[in-house]
């Protein structure tokens, strides 16, 4: 993929070009696969006779699929608001280290901080992994715009997928709905594999492998905390690996 070259024309034009480049990177495959995952979400909502307005409201305001599925499943199971908030917060805790890791990459000197706080609303796995992989090849001033362009297309695809899934819920065979729900982890798996390729060393790969492996024993110890345990454990192992490699 081409980086966005820093050129001599006006900053506004450069920004628009980066925005469009990000949008183009997200169009087609990423938008289709994420959209299909959201067809799974929309049909989950439709099949249980919750409203389309609710499904769209949720995709608009809390765009992060695993947390959205937790919200719907717990609501249907009759959980209270407090229990739902805690479970969604726990399911989405990954967004904190993801955002931390992306900020130094996209922050440009002299830009007001509110832009970062506003953009952080779009930190979600797909556009995050794409930006982590592509941003190092771009001029610093273009990166945040590229990320936003990428996110807007994916967000739109998610909303469209939600609508399609909602109306198709009754028509879609149950087997297809299950396949669409399963797309999400498979897509993430391949995306992470891809995003480790441009890395300068194996730290990210070590983090992925140890985090994934630790998830299974951690789940038997505590299903609620398994992601955090595996993340802290795997991340620490990978950081130690990096320290050992740098010292060598």
């Amino acid at each position: 993929m081409k980086g966005v070259a820093a050129d001599e024309d006006s900053p506004a034009r450069g920004t628009r070009r980066a925005l469009l480049a990000g949008a183009r990177a997200a169009a087609l495959a990423p938008a289709l696969v994420l959209g299909a995952s959201y067809v799974g979400f929309g049909s989950l909502v439709g099949a249980h006779e919750l409203s389309l307005e609710f499904a769209l409201f949720n995709t608009l305001t809390a765009w992060a699929l695993p947390g959205q599925v937790v919200l719907v499943e717990l609501y249907l199971a009759g959980s209270g608001v407090l229990a739902i908030v805690l479970a969604v917060g726990l399911a989405n805790m990954r967004l904190a280290p993801m955002t931390v890791a992306m900020m130094p990459l996209v922050a440009a000197p002299g830009r007001p901080p509110w832009r970062l706080y506003a953009s952080a609303f779009f930190v979600a796995v797909t556009c995050w992994a794409m930006t982590m992989a592509q941003a190092p090849n771009m001029a610093r001033s273009d990166r945040l715009s590229w990320f936003i362009g990428c996110s807007l297309v994916l967000w739109g695809a998610s909303l469209a997928g939600t609508v399609v899934g909602f109306y198709a819920a009754a028509e879609l065979p149950a087997a297809l709905t299950l396949a669409l729900v399963f797309l999400n982890p498979v897509y993430f798996l391949l995306l992470f594999l891809q995003s480790t390729q441009g890395a300068r060393d194996a730290t990210r790969l070590v983090a992925l492998l140890t985090g994934g492996a630790l998830c299974v024993p951690a789940h038997f110890y505590s299903p609620e905390w398994s992601l955090l345990i595996a993340g802290l454990g795997g991340g620490t192992v990978a950081a130690l690996y990096r320290v050992a490699m740098v010292r060598r």
Partner: peptide, 22 residues
């Protein structure tokens, strides 16, 4: 910073494993 980034990748891998295995 490296540690935070590594934790992010490890959590995401764990999320994939959880969605597939559990």
């Amino acid at each position: 910073f490296e540690w935070f980034a590594a934790v992010a990748y490890a959590i995401l891998a764990a999320l994939v494993v959880r969605l597939v295995v559990f």
